[in-house]
Design a protein around this nucleic acid. Structure first.
Length: 283
DNA sequence: TTTCCTGTTAGTGT
DNA sequence: AACACTAACAGGAA
């Protein structure tokens, strides 16, 4: 799930594996997903891996950066002599031999390591940018929710600027808060026991506090979990992982609310996206 | 077969 | 500003 937790997971694993390696060759199999100069990459060493919002940044020693957006269905799979790990959308399954039809860019790295960029729906992209372009890419992106700077006061201040907006919409708005997508927006509302369809202006102080708390608690747990999931080498079964187990409302329509309050999880459409909630405990 | 859905987001019109 | 709708695309589910 290319929301914040999964990108963060990829970031941590890739950082460990790829920093210090040189890019030896790049095979672009679908041109439209690659923006930039391939010559900026060849023979260049990877010096860092970062995440900002839902984007993965690979820093290069020549002051260039590779910027990945996995959109709905992107995957990154890193393969070394021990096997491979993958992160992103689990379809096609990480166990499927790469490269395959959804493998659009292949980075051959020193030491016989390979990074595959897969994108089933072809919405995602990788860009090679300089410092200035990198900054521009994030000029309209809001604060990182897990940053210490993202306090309750800061959160309240940001959302109160948009009193008429719906809670779920605000949570997913990248210019307001970075990295939260459709799954976690529903999960956070459930945590805070508020209906995702309510407007910001209707929230009490306590509810805002709970929403903030939900963001701060759910995302790290998800990172921990996704780490496990994405860590599974392809020889292991179940690459879809157990993260579904962790979700309280997303995809659980028709099932009992886990708070055992007699409620059943409902699914509605909000702004064209599925929204999940329990109308008994969420007010 | 057809239709509808999907973890994103940029752009357009009202 | 908020909201609805569309477009990029492939494929699984009903």
């Amino acid at each position: 799930m290319p929301e914040l937790p999964e990108i963060e997971t990829i970031k941590r694993q890739l950082e460990e594996k790829a920093v210090g390696l040189k890019i030896e060759k790049v095979d672009i199999r679908l041109k439209k997903l690659f923006v930039g100069e391939i010559n900026d990459l060849i023979g260049v060493k990877i010096v860092g891996v970062r995440r900002r919002a839902k984007l993965l940044i690979i820093d290069l020693e020549n002051k260039k950066h590779m910027l990945f957006h996995l959109k709905m269905s992107g995957q990154l799979i890193f393969e070394d002599r021990n096997g491979k790990f993958g992160g992103g959308h689990p379809v096609p399954p990480f166990s499927k031999p790469v490269p395959h039809s959804a493998t659009h860019v292949i980075f051959y790295l020193s030491g016989n390591n390979i990074l595959y960029f897969n994108e089933l729906r072809q919405f995602g992209w990788v860009k090679v940018v300089n410092d200035k372009q990198l900054e521009e890419n994030f000029s309209k992106v809001g604060p990182e929710p897990l940053s210490e700077l993202f306090t309750l006061e800061k959160f309240s201040k940001i959302i109160e600027k948009r009193p008429k907006s719906k809670i779920k919409q605000i949570l997913m708005d990248q210019s307001t808060i970075a990295g939260i997508g459709n799954i976690y927006a529903s999960e956070i509302c459930y945590y805070a026991k508020v209906m995702p369809t309510r407007s910001i202006g209707s929230l009490t102080k306590d509810e805002k506090k709970l929403l903030h708390e939900g963001i701060k608690k759910i995302l790290p747990v998800a990172i921990k979990y996704q780490g496990t999931s994405a860590d599974s080498y392809v020889t292991l079964a179940g690459e879809k992982g157990t993260y579904i187990k962790y979700l309280k409302v997303y995809g659980r329509q028709g099932q009992k609310c886990l708070r055992n309050d007699g409620g059943v999880i409902e699914k509605i459409k909000q702004g064209g996206r599925g929204t999940f909630f329990c109308s008994v405990c969420q007010k």
